[in-house]
Design a binder for these strands. Structure first.
Lengths: 206, 206
DNA sequence: TAACCGTTTGACCATCCGGTAAAGGCCACG
DNA sequence: CGTGGCCTTTACCGGATGGTCAAACGGTTA
């Protein structure tokens, strides 16, 4: 189903993947059922299996199809740009992803939490390669004295952790903050402050 | 089974809960099966159900039994202590929990990720109360000018996010870092730097 | 209009899984 | 050393669930 031919195939495949995202992200792979996905998609279960060979195939296509999108913000970090601005923009984009695409965030989180049974290959390949590449950029910026010197990989981890937390642990964040808070608006300010302080060059000791 | 009477009851209940922690944290509630837990525990499935009334009862007892332990590091933050030292100690303890009790971290993460079907009450009650209490302590420290002024709840979120990341996303962290790294040792240094910079009082503008 | 082909569905199957029943084993106590 | 009661197991049940199949549907084309 990777190359849908007819219009109806394209439409139904998309409908199914959208429904699958909804259900898989909310219940995990094992916790999701084809019946649930079928209901959300407005299709019958055998009809799902006309478009995809199995439950696992739907899940796999979802993950692989979304991975690129998920890594785009990091890819967009420009080695020729201004270091601080590039990193802040990356944090900002990543937090927007958490706000606008929390289901995708949870989908990935579910898998990685359980030892990445589905994403292991992508993590060890594509993702590690990208982080390695961008770590070198960060390291160069640090060597050039344009941002504070820090372990680049851990800097990236902290960006992931802090931004994805607001998507993955949304219920907890909202419960703790209570009514009358906009978690993402507050997080935007807070993370901007945090990374500004973290990356600022240490003052000359006088 | 909350009050085991005989020695054998106590032992088997503990064995079951230990096995359940192993299996639930690795596969989530729905992904775990009683047969898996029974196998890990070295008991038969009906035997599990002699000690606990249902799969859900095992899961619930696990969660409630571990919640207090999980919140202990935050509870231990002393309002009368030195602000920076207290917070740094909290970060340190929380990271140690991630290192020494990753299964517990994943158990909670699994539930919250999926909307906290099991922990919702505890999150809205106990956890929110504790965070509220400690937020006031942090706010006072900020008002007294002893640490940088930041939104207290978000400060706590960032401690959770950054420390738990190393437990919950362990496979990803290790894949990205590659061989020859000690994620937790490096994280200790990195997070110490991060929070030191974050909490440092802004210099007088000269 | 008839026939072809992509699409949809109702009925069904096999397996997995949480849970039950009842018989048998085993230990502690008298 | 026997008996009562705690513990364990074998066999099994019923519902949920992933997946199959063949028939039916419907739109496009000759």
């Amino acid at each position: 189903m990777s190359r849908p031919r007819t219009r109806i195939q394209r439409k139904n495949s998309e409908t199914i993947l959208e429904a699958a995202l909804e259900v898989f992200s909310a219940h995990g792979f094992r916790g999701a059922t084809l019946d649930q996905i079928a209901e959300v998609a407005g299709l019958s279960k055998p009809n799902l299996l006309y478009y995809f060979p199995s439950k696992e195939a739907i899940h796999t296509e979802l993950l692989t199809g979304l991975l690129d999108t998920w890594l785009d913000p990091l890819r967009a970090m420009d080695p020729e740009g201004d270091p601080l601005a590039e990193i802040m923009a990356y944090v900002s984009r990543k937090l927007e992803m958490s706000r606008d695409y929390p289901r995708e965030s949870r989908l990935f989180a579910n898998d990685i939490l359980q030892g990445a049974p589905f994403m292991r290959a992508a993590i060890e390949g594509e993702l590690t390669a990208l982080v390695t590449e961008k770590s070198q950029v960060l390291q160069r910026w640090m060597d050039e004295g344009r941002i504070a010197a820090l372990p680049p990989a851990h800097l990236i981890f902290s960006i992931w952790a802090l931004t994805q937390h607001y998507a993955d642990f949304d219920v907890q964040v909202r419960a703790v903050l209570g009514e009358g808070h906009d978690p993402f608006a507050e997080a935007t300010d807070y993370l901007e402050t945090l990374f500004a302080k973290l990356l600022a060059l240490p003052r000359e000791t006088g």
